[in-house]
Every structure is written in C-alpha cells, then in structure tokens.
Amino acid sequence: MNNETFGITFQYAICIKYKLKNNISLDRVDKKLLAIFLNSKIINKIFRGKRPVEYLSDSKEFTSPFIKKCPHNFLLSNDETFSVRTFQGSGKMFAPKVVGQAGDETFNHFFGHLSTEEISRNNFKEFCLNHIDEMLPIIVDYALVSDFNCWFYIEGKTFNYKILKRDDLPELTFDYKNFTFTRPTSNEWVESNTIKYKGKMVLELQLHTFKAA
C-alpha cells in the first residue's frame, strides 16, 4: 500500500470516529486498514484530551493567495489545529506544507525578504548557498505548521506516533558555519543538493530544470 492510501485512510478513520463531515472519496480508502484503525485504540490515544470537531483538509479556511490548500487536517474543539503526516517507517524525509514544493512566486513570497533582488532560477542556487541559515527556520516553521503535528508511522507491524506541539518549538537560530553542502557551489549543484548541519543531513534542495518550480 502506498503512503497516500495509508494517510487518507487514517484521516478517514478519524472522521468516522468523530463523525466529521468530509469529502474523502471511498476509492482512496483501504477498507481493511480502515477496520484496523477503527478497532485499535490508536485514534483515542492520539486525541486524548483533544477533540477534533472539523475536517479541514478540504476547506478554504487558513488559505491565502499563497497558501492555496489548507495546511491543517483537523480543527480541535479549543480552536487549535491538528495535522497528521503518515510515513511508511521512521526516519523518513518529507516536504513541509506550503513552502516545501514552492513555485517561483510562492518561493519569493516566503523567502524574498532575505534577498535584495527577486529570486529566480538564475540566482536560486546562490541564494540558497548564501542564506541557508536564514531559510531553515522558515522551513522548520512550516514543517510544524499546525498547533499539533502528529507524525504517524508503521514500525514492523506496530503503529507508532509522535506529536510535536508548535508551542514547544524553540526559537531556532542556525550558525552558517555549521552547514555543509554536498554541492558547495552553484556550478557543482546541477539540480539536487544535500544540506547537512553539524554533519547531519537536514535538508534536500531541488531545482527542477524542466519545471517552473
């Protein structure tokens, strides 16, 4: 089963459990997995002390001209937002919502203030190489965009999860000198570059040659 089916089935199970209106097509849902989710206590555990009252993924709430789709999955009874990200295993990378797959305009909207000139595909690589310490806090901010961010994954045959609370996110500053790039110059960087902080891989940057993003 692919991660999309895994993720949407889990979201659908939450909607069923809490009787939330949704437009999820049953074609996208794995019935066997749905029964497993509903018969397990995992949803109760995840939402202990929190009650989802609205399914937000389909809604236009929390959107803007640069945030076209709602970045949150659920609204809680206390008006806080909740998102679930599913992984088919632990330690996987993902694209943060909103900024993770930005086109030219969106990228400039969220990162343009870090540059004196408009960021285009001609200067994108130089911009990233020179401003990675300022970019990463913005990227992390959108990786944990909801008040509660649940990372849900399978380990062996067991469901596991971690909930990261946005309020617990410390003020992040990164020292430029601790960054290293597998492609340290724009000439060496063709389309893909792996960024490490203190030797640990934290980010992949991709510039698609054949796309407008």
């Binding site: 991660n3 999309e4 993902f94 694209a95 919502k97 797959q101 086109g103």
Partner: peptide
C-alpha cells in the same frame, strides 16, 4: 504537477 500543493505524490 505538485508545485504549490501539499500533495507528496511526486516525491513518493
């Protein structure tokens, strides 16, 4: 095309 979306299909 997943540009400017929250859809991860391309990455998958």
């Amino acid at each position: 095309d997943n540009t400017d979306t929250n859809d991860d299909t391309e990455f998958a």
